[in-house]
Amino acid sequence: MALAGTAADSQDDPLPFQDDFASSVLEGLSASPKTAEPKWLYDALGAKLFEAICEVDTYYPTRNEMTVLADRAGEIAGHLGNDIILIEPGSGEGIKVRYLLDALGGQVTVYVPVDIAAEQLVYLGETISAAYPDMLVAPVVADFTGTFEIPADLPPGRRVLFFPGSTIGNFEPEVASELLKRLREESRADALLIGIDTCKDEDRLVAAYDDPVGVTAAFNKNLLNRINRELDGTFDLDTFHHEARFNPDRSRVEMHLVSDRDQTVEVWGRRFSFSQGESIHTESSHKYSPEEFQVLAGRAGWRPDTYWKDSDGLFSLHLLKAG
């Protein structure tokens, strides 16, 4: 089938999310402690750097999730049924979805990738459409953490949300539950297939988010590059370093950009002071046991169906039904 039009077709502003980016950055730098929303890590370069992180030996989540998908794809296909409209919030390069599409074959009639990175999304839509010519591909350029619309002219079918990568772990548990609830309501999905990283020993967790090659550090510090480029920032990247910390009380890994000295930076004409050792908390990755996640999802109106884990028990993939 032909590639459907995207939300980008009607966007005249080459940076449609710039105002949101500016407001978010200024608010986060004004807070105490300073923070940044992790979604802003994923500009075009950030998305490429994250894909590189997924290839690093110490970063197990992607590798283990793909193992589960590869090993269990047939079982998953059997649970999902036919005439599927597959909706993927935060689709990225769409690597993992191919495992599902290959296993599901003609069971998927429509694929709806949703992503904030417009250039990457258009490329994904073209490559997926070429690889699966009998399936309609309808990309949506949007921030899935906010309100977005699924195309209204899709054919009827069973709607399935595919949310891999333990992306839900980037949100505080209460916010994660609200997001899962809103995704269910706005997409009118019948089922949710979602990846969840399990809690494990601190050394393994920290190594996954602070690789020896320095790719994760480049990914994190690219946020400062983006602020400098898009918001007239004056961050000196040589005076900040990347740091990953495990917070056992909140069962999460935190990423920080730490100032190496006392300094002042400007962003959009506003000045922000940093003391030596002060950080910007850029991302959290919460870890859940399967039982803990099922409780969280239940609060969002999702009913547990089944889940699968890799052989080492490092990662779980959950199938839930709309309650």
Rank of each mutant, 00 (worst) to 15 (best):
P151R: 03
L320Y: 06
T58F: 00
L231K: 15
R98T: 08
E55H: 06
P212T: 13
I85Y: 06
N82H: 13
T127A: 08
E292K: 12
F315I: 12
S24F: 03
G313C: 11
I168G: 12
V215F: 02
K39W: 03
F163Y: 10
P248K: 06
E185R: 08
F163D: 02
D115A: 02
R303A: 10
A176T: 10
S251R: 15
D210C: 08
T239G: 03
L192Y: 11
K39C: 01
I76G: 05
Q294P: 04
S32P: 01
D197N: 12
A300L: 05
F21Y: 07
T109R: 07
V295W: 00
H281V: 14
T109C: 01
K48P: 00
T109S: 07
S30V: 05
Q107F: 01
A118P: 01
P212L: 11
A31G: 05
H286I: 05
L69V: 13
E88T: 00
L29E: 01
D203K: 14
E51D: 07
E266P: 04
R245E: 12
R72C: 09
T145E: 12
I196K: 15
D236F: 09
A70E: 15
D201N: 14
D238R: 04
L41N: 00
D310Q: 14
V258A: 08
L101C: 09
A44Q: 01
Y132E: 09
V137W: 02
I280Q: 07
G106I: 12
A8L: 09
N82E: 15
R72Q: 13
G298S: 15
G106D: 11
N220K: 06
F219E: 07
T234S: 15
D9V: 02
A131C: 10
E126Q: 14
S24K: 01
F240G: 04
R303K: 10
T109K: 08
E37D: 03
G94V: 03
T6D: 08
K287H: 12
S316G: 15
Y132F: 14
S284L: 13
S187I: 01
D232N: 15
G78V: 12
T216M: 05
R229S: 12
L29R: 02
L180Q: 09
A4P: 00
G74S: 14
G269Y: 10
Y123D: 02
V122Y: 02
G105D: 09
D143A: 02
K39H: 02
K96A: 01
D249N: 11
L205E: 01
I150C: 03
N225Q: 12
S177Q: 14
S129I: 02
K287F: 12
A138H: 00
A7M: 13
V137F: 04
E266Y: 07
R63A: 14
I76K: 08
T234L: 12
L320A: 06
W302V: 03
A142M: 13
A138M: 09
